[in-house]
Amino acid sequence: MTAMQIVFLITAVVTLFAAFRTVTTPNLIHAALWLILALAGVAVFYALLNANFFAVIQVVVYIGAIAILMVFAIMLTRREMRDRGKQTSGRWWWAAILGAVFFAGVTWMIEAVALPSQPTAAVPASSIADLGKALVNPNGYVIPFEVASVLLLAALIGAVFVAWTRHNS
């Protein structure tokens, strides 16, 4: 086993455990923190894949913004949300079966596609500049790029409308 594989395995175990604790811990703040650990694990995966930009963005957006948004949302709730009761619903095994089926399906798909075991092309040195060029290239992703902006604008308007208008009246 190479050092990379060991790092990968450790990260995988930590990420999965954190994800598991996210859904099983009764304390909502703890759940949010476990989720943050799981998200950090994903960032490590990106780093292992040499996807520097995505590793950093994963941390900036998911841990720096989304996780904090969640913590704020939790603190907005009243005490009732701090659930001390049973953490599983009566039909948890349905979810377990569905999860297992989904996992099997994904595994089968990955096996069936027969991905090349070695990279087919060398990783370009400045992939970020290429990404930037592709984003604004008329033959590339310029439409999704601008649509993303409009989408975010719509998201913000929607959020302000829902959260703020009701609050004011």
Partner: peptide, 25 residues
């Protein structure tokens, strides 16, 4: 010559923010 260093400084700052939330809570 880390090609995302500028964003890295922001990303690391997210953990400092997290530390403060943790301390307060």
């Amino acid at each position: 010559d880390f090609n995302v260093a500028a964003l890295y400084t922001i990303a690391v700052g997210a953990f400092a923010t997290l530390g403060i939330i943790l301390a307060g809570w």
